[in-house]
Amino acid sequence: MTISIGSQLPQAKFKEKTADGPTEITTDELFKGKRVVLFAVPGAFTPTCSLNHLPGYLENRDAILAKGVDDIAVVAVNDWHVMGAWAQNSGGMGKIHFLADWDGAFTKALGLDADLSAGGLGLRSKRYSMLVEDGVVKSLNVEENPGQATVSAAAAMLEQL
Rank of each mutant, 00 (worst) to 15 (best):
139 S>C: 06
131 L>Y: 06
78 N>T: 13
55 P>N: 12
125 S>H: 04
152 S>F: 00
48 T>G: 12
83 M>W: 11
26 T>G: 11
121 L>C: 10
53 H>S: 06
14 F>L: 10
25 I>F: 00
101 D>I: 04
36 V>R: 00
130 M>T: 07
148 Q>C: 10
48 T>I: 11
132 V>M: 02
27 T>I: 01
49 C>P: 05
128 Y>F: 15
139 S>G: 13
6 G>N: 00
123 L>P: 11
143 E>S: 11
128 Y>T: 07
2 T>L: 07
152 S>R: 06
133 E>L: 04
23 T>Q: 15
48 T>D: 11
11 Q>F: 10
59 E>H: 06
117 S>G: 12
6 G>L: 00
114 A>S: 14
23 T>W: 02
153 A>H: 05
49 C>M: 05
47 P>Q: 13
70 D>E: 08
22 P>T: 10
124 R>W: 04
125 S>C: 12
65 L>T: 14
2 T>E: 08
87 A>S: 14
81 H>N: 14
67 K>C: 07
30 L>D: 04
100 A>M: 02
159 E>K: 15
7 S>C: 12
118 A>K: 15
148 Q>S: 15
120 G>F: 04
140 L>T: 09
151 V>A: 15
57 Y>M: 08
157 M>G: 07
126 K>S: 13
115 D>S: 09
2 T>D: 07
40 A>F: 04
51 L>E: 15
126 K>A: 11
106 F>H: 11
90 S>W: 01
93 M>N: 13
23 T>R: 15
112 L>N: 01
74 V>N: 09
144 E>M: 10
159 E>F: 05
54 L>F: 05
15 K>R: 15
67 K>D: 04
154 A>D: 03
61 R>V: 05
61 R>I: 07
5 I>V: 15
88 Q>A: 14
127 R>W: 07
6 G>C: 01
37 V>H: 01
93 M>L: 14
111 G>R: 03
100 A>T: 05
12 A>T: 15
81 H>A: 15
24 E>C: 11
